[in-house]
Simulated assay, not measured.
Amino acid sequence: MGILSRTPPNFFAAPFGFTGLAGTWLVLSRTANAPRGVSAALYVLAAAVWLVLLVGYLARVTTTRGRLMADLRDPVLSPFVSVIAIVAMQLGVGLHSYAPRTATVVVDVALVVVIGLGGWLTGQWMTGAPDQDKFHPGYLLPTVAGGLVASAAATTVGQPGLGRLCFGIGIVCWLVIGSLMLQRLFFRPPLPTPLVPTMAIEVAPAPVAGLAWFALTPAPDTLAFGLAGYTILMTLAQIRLIPIYLRTPFTPGFWAFTFSYAAVATLAIRWLAVERPPAQQALSWLIALLLTALIGAIAVRSVIALVQRTYFPPPPPPPPPPATTTAPESGHPR
């Protein structure tokens, strides 16, 4: 399996980002006459990347005894394991227009895995006394992103009751984990350099919640406006972080930008379709093209890192040779 067997769970942020971009183009096709094939091609690309990484991750956890449980207990990596199933839910949404029954099965199976993992990880955090300085915005993924993406996915495949249930999981966990996360970012030492890009995840909960709520309640109401307002605030906060991002060396962690900013872009396009300003279609296209350029740049930089063999983590060091002892020679007492 070679280098693929060194696939860590955070690498699934790449197909997650591609599904976010596909969702943006899907909304653009419905509101601004974009070709539907762009969204379909991006879902296919996301599925291909997801499958390759899944093969690699399965090799990782099956060739090293106890690797999966170690990942689920790791204070840095554990939240990212859930992204594997969250991406599967997103792929089910992309499949729904072409094979609705199959898409429903994919969404439901992935949803059960996501909620199950979210519950297990919540219990793990409750009993494991996590180090607050290792707490990072990725902790929003299993229950906040998982619950809200599951809400939109379930509603899309025709299960609005399940969508409401998952919306509750996502919103309540956002209120709890989100407040703890901001406390950590406000008052504790800065994140380690490899985790700096995860601050982009902070912008995601509000637009993902907004999209889930639009799926449940297409006509904008007070909650929809409130989620849009908080999305604006957290997007402005990201602008202040740009100098920090520019000083950070490129790592696969930069894929954290992709789904987060795709959620902002998709919600913006959705609101433009509701409000219908004079330049609605032009603004929608501009947002989608800027997002595509950003994700394309991260993808190109990732390919360069792959070619340079700097993308994957280095192989673990070989175990030390067993100690040898020399028996005393016969007839020569010590």
Rank of each mutant, 00 (worst) to 15 (best):
T198R: 01
L45A: 14
M126G: 11
A110K: 01
T155D: 07
P75R: 00
P318N: 10
A150P: 01
L294F: 08
A41N: 08
L72G: 04
V274R: 12
L191E: 02
A305D: 02
P8Y: 08
C173G: 13
A206Q: 02
M126P: 09
A228N: 06
R164L: 15
A41T: 06
L182V: 15
L283E: 15
F259E: 00
G37K: 05
L185G: 05
P189T: 00
R276F: 01
N10I: 09
L286A: 15
R240Q: 11
F312H: 11
I115V: 15
L175A: 10
G158T: 05
P130S: 06
A110G: 07
T143A: 09
Q159M: 14
P142K: 00
L121W: 03
T63G: 15
V52D: 07
A268K: 05
L117Y: 14
V55W: 13
F11G: 00
H96K: 10
R247Y: 06
P190M: 04
R270S: 14
G168W: 14
V300P: 08
V157G: 08
A34Y: 05
L294A: 10
T62H: 12
L53D: 00
V196N: 06
S39T: 00
W285Q: 08
G128H: 06
P130D: 08
T127A: 09
M181W: 09
Q280F: 14
A13T: 13
L290W: 13
A262R: 04
L45W: 09
P277F: 07
